[in-house]
Every structure is written in structure tokens, then in C-alpha cells.
């Protein structure tokens, strides 16, 4: 097929036994059904992609309602995913989990869980200071952040405390362990970004080799 991505909803993690008795940790993902709502082609847009709609909506604003007129359906989530051979794709076409196959490698894009204003230990994996030997207030302190009179400033990009999470995060080259086309489920190996029930994107990876 030629649509190389799908909008999905993360369900949560579980595990699967392989035939040889090995256990694989997997994340279950509800992938589709998605409807093609718009097509980008080479001549007009300079690249090829399709816009997909996921999960029915009751109301959308009038601008989007007008945009969705050709499919005569309203969606809560619209997202563009890469595609090729767009001539063969029609607006209104539906895709689901069957678009992917077992063993395929994908990239998973999600919004990571927000951690708020996080210190350096949580955010950058600093070790903090000693707990004992006469120390006070040093347990999770960052330590020195630079020199003195020379250079007389803190270098840009120095790792410090600050906002962590709640950012678009991509996990690349994830293996698909199981596909359930009837329930539109994908089981991908390992953890993926974001909270359960959050919206994610699954794309065929462009990473080469294994």
C-alpha cells in the first residue's frame, strides 16, 4: 500500500508470548479506522501525502466543516501522513490496522507526559550530591554550572532545571509484533511516548537496516 502512516490512540502496555516461550513487552494501539480527507500531490504541493481523519466528531468549526465536505463526515483529529502513488488513493477511502504487517518497522510519534518544572536529577540524569557527611540541601543540587571570572558567563545550552515533557517525541524503528485488523489494533514492541488514551501517529520508518 501507499499510505505510510496512520493516526492512532495509545491504549496501554501488556505482554505477548511468542511461540518459543519468549515474552515481548508490547504497547497496544488503536490504529484507525481512518478516512482520507485530503490529498497532497506533486504538481500542486511539491510533495505527496494524505490527510487522515480519525474518530467521529459531533461538531467542528465551519472552516473545517467546509474542508470536510467531500467526505461528508466530521472528525476529531486530522493529521497529514506521508504517502506515495497518491493517484491510486481516493478521498473518502478508509484505512486501518491492516495497512501494517507483522515484523514491519515503524516510527511512533506522540506527546510525552508532562513533568512540569523538573530538577536536573530527573531532567538530565544528574547524580545530585551526597546525602550525609555534613551536607545540607545538596541531595538533588546540580553542582557547579560554570567557571568564575573567566569566562564570566554561563555557556548556552548548559543543562539546568526547567520544563520537562509535554513535547512531541518520536521513537524510531519500533517493531510491530502483532496486527489485529478486526479490532484495528497494533501491538508494537516496547514503550511509546505519551499517556494512555493519548493520540499518536504511527509511520513506516525510513531508517535503513536493522
Amino acid at each position: 500500500m501507499s499510505i505510510n502512516g496512520i493516526i492512532a490512540r495509545k491504549i496501554g502496555m501488556t505482554q505477548i508470548f511468542l511461540d518459543d516461550g519468549k515474552v515481548v513487552p508490547v504497547t497496544a494501539v488503536k490504529a484507525g479506522p481512518c478516512t482520507v480527507t485530503f490529498i497532497r500531490d506533486d504538481t500542486r504541493d511539491g510533495y505527496t501525502a494524505v490527510q487522515l481523519g480519525f474518530e467521529d466528531a459531533k461538531y467542528v468549526n465551519k472552516g473545517i466543516a467546509g474542508h470536510l465536505k467531500p467526505v461528508s463526515k466530521l472528525f476529531r483529529h486530522l493529521k497529514e501522513v506521508p504517502a506515495n502513488d497518491v493517484d491510486e488513493i481516493e478521498i473518502g477511502q478508509e484505512i486501518g490496522a491492516e495497512n501494517f504487517s507483522v515484523g514491519e518497522r515503524v516510527d511512533v510519534i506522540g506527546l510525552s507526559k508532562g513533568r512540569g518544572f523538573a530538577g536536573t536529577v530527573k531532567r538530565h540524569g544528574f547524580r545530585g550530591g551526597p546525602k550525609t557527611h555534613g551536607q545540607s540541601d545538596r541531595l538533588r543540587a546540580p553542582g557547579s554550572i560554570g567557571g568564575g571570572t573567566f569566562p564570566g558567563r554561563i555557556f548556552k545550552g548548559t543543562k539546568m532545571a526547567g520544563h520537562m515533557g509535554n513535547s512531541r517525541t518520536t521513537i524510531r524503528n519500533v517493531e510491530i509484533v502483532e496486527v489485529d485488523p478486526e479490532r484495528n489494533l497494533l501491538f508494537v514492541k516496547g514503550a511509546i511516548p505519551g499517556a494512555s488514551r493519548s493520540i499518536i501517529q504511527v509511520r513506516r520508518t525510513n531508517k535503513k537496516g536493522k
Binding site: 491504549i11 502496555m13 501488556t14 479490532r183 489494533l185
Partner: peptide, 11 residues
Amino acid sequence: MDAHHLVQNQP
């Protein structure tokens, strides 16, 4: 939430 209920255990 975990997704245990989605996996069919082979009894």
C-alpha cells in the same frame, strides 16, 4: 491503564 484484556491468552 494496561491493555491486558486485549491479549487473548492461550489456555
